[in-house]
Computed example of a mutant assay.
Amino acid sequence: MPLPFLTADRAFGTSDDDVALPFDDHDRWRRPYRPGPWRVGAAALLLLLASFVLIAAMIIAFAGELPGAGVCLGLGLALIFASLRLLRMGVWVSRHGVRRVAFFSTATVPWNRVSAVRTVQQPVRWLGLPRTVQGQALVAVAQHGEALPLLTDHNADFLSRVEAFDRAADSVEAWGAEYRGA
């Protein structure tokens, strides 16, 4: 079963004729990079926990305690939803703009409101936790001067994967360069 939110449509750097925007349909929202091992591992652990909770719900239901089974079923479904949302997090691009999907929120900025997309050195959060370390961040600078952080080299997608961060930042910058003026 293909999961389009889990992988990029094409692996970057696999051939000599790679182009910056290797997609046919630029109107569709796409993540221009693959999710990192930390994000996929956390989602897999949540799904594993959800399977145990759903089995417990089934056992409780067979024992005749339907309210308890309902609570376990709700908790299992919440864990599945959380793991899918965790996999969906990241930066998505299309002809219409750039979208940063967080766990509880989504921010979309049209390309015509973005004055620049660039990589900057700054303190970044390590795996989304409050602890900050010095690192790189890809930011979209809006025309009124506000900077929207898109990616960091210490988030769950790029921790210890410097080359993947560079490819993803270059790809998002290429999308911005292509559609900012359009």
Rank of each mutant, 00 (worst) to 15 (best):
L148S: 04
V114Y: 04
E146T: 15
N112Y: 08
G145W: 13
L150T: 05
V124P: 02
A140L: 02
T132S: 11
Q134G: 10
Q121D: 11
D157N: 15
R131D: 02
H154N: 07
L150H: 03
S115G: 02
W126K: 09
V124D: 09
N112T: 07
Q122M: 09
W126D: 02
A147I: 00
H144F: 10
P123A: 11
L151Y: 08
V141C: 08
A142I: 00
N155A: 08
L129Q: 12
V124M: 03
L151S: 03
V117N: 04
Q121F: 01
L138T: 06
E146Q: 15
Q143R: 15
A116K: 13
A142C: 14
G145L: 15
V117Q: 09
G135I: 03
T132E: 12
D153Q: 05
A156D: 09
H144N: 15
Q121N: 06
L150R: 02
L127M: 14
R125W: 04
A137H: 01
V139W: 06
Q121K: 09
G128V: 10
V114Q: 12
Q134Y: 02
R125C: 07
D157R: 09
Q121R: 10
R131S: 02
L138D: 06
G145R: 14
N112C: 02
R131T: 11
V117D: 06
A142S: 14
V120T: 11
E146P: 00
R118V: 03
L148G: 02
G135L: 04
F158Y: 09
V139G: 10
G135R: 05
S115Q: 12
Q121M: 04
A140E: 01
P130Y: 05
S115F: 00
D157L: 11
A140N: 03
A140W: 02
D157C: 08
D157S: 14
R118M: 02
R125M: 01
A156L: 15
E146V: 15
Q134C: 03
Q143C: 12
R131M: 12
G128C: 09
T132L: 04
L127A: 07
R113H: 13
D153Y: 01
L138W: 03
R131K: 13
G128Y: 04
H154E: 13
R131H: 13
V141L: 14
V139D: 12
V141R: 13
G128D: 12
L129Y: 08
G145Y: 14
T132W: 00
H144G: 11
P123N: 10
E146D: 14
Q143I: 10
V133A: 14
N112R: 12
Q134V: 01
P130R: 07
T132Q: 13
Q121E: 12
R118H: 07
T152E: 05
T119K: 01
V133P: 00
G145T: 13
S115L: 03
L150K: 04
P130L: 02
F158R: 07
L148K: 00
V139S: 07
V120C: 07
L138Q: 06
R125L: 07
L138C: 03
T152C: 04
A140P: 05
L150Q: 08
